[in-house]
Nucleic acid binder design. Structure first.
Length: 154
DNA sequence: GCCAACGTTGGC
DNA sequence: GCCAACGTTGGC
């Protein structure tokens, strides 16, 4: 099983929005970056776990955990001309963008803040992609060791 | 294939 | 709102 970190802006779609959905499940759509796309399409497997990270907000950090509950499949929002994430270059015959379905596992009582993660950026979390300078990928891998360590910060 | 211009991300 | 970092675009 692999582990991941998924970024989302809580003003757009935060962990509470996910928790409010009937099955607490949604397609992780709108990713428009090839590296991230490749991970959604090729590397993520059913049963993998991912941290739900709140970005571009007052208290950036990990808000909870989701489970990947589908393999990658084409992102419908790319086909919809009225959608903000529309991409005319993506067609049903040759889809360019992909999603996976994610289901809420747990919302943390307190966000594990970016500040707290950074406290370990020279030690346990030295390899964490999220903390690398200039990192902007919205989907990043997390090693099992990093995952287990971050859970101790909860 | 190079690279300047431009758009986006995301912490602060 | 600022701006550094990075990805994409498009002229050449």
């Amino acid at each position: 099983m692999n582990h991941w970190l998924l970024k989302s802006e809580p003003e757009t779609f935060g962990i509470d929005a996910l928790a409010a959905l009937p099955k607490k499940t949604t397609a992780w759509d709108g990713v428009r970056n090839y590296q991230a796309r490749n991970m959604l399409r090729d590397a993520m497997k059913k049963g993998d776990l991912a941290f739900f990270y709140h970005s571009n907000c007052k208290l950036p950090g990990i808000a909870g955990i989701v489970r990947i509950v589908s393999e990658g499949y084409p992102d419908e929002t790319a086909f919809d001309a009225r959608h903000a994430h529309y991409d005319p270059a993506s067609t049903r015959e040759h889809p360019r963008w992909f999603v996976v379905d994610v289901k809420l596992v747990v919302k943390f009582k307190r966000v594990i803040t970016l500040d707290r993660l950074r406290e370990h950026s020279s030690t346990e979390l030295a390899g964490l992609a999220l903390l690398r300078r200039g990192n902007r990928l919205s989907v990043t891998p997390v090693s099992k060791k990093e995952w287990d360590f971050i859970l101790t910060l909860e």
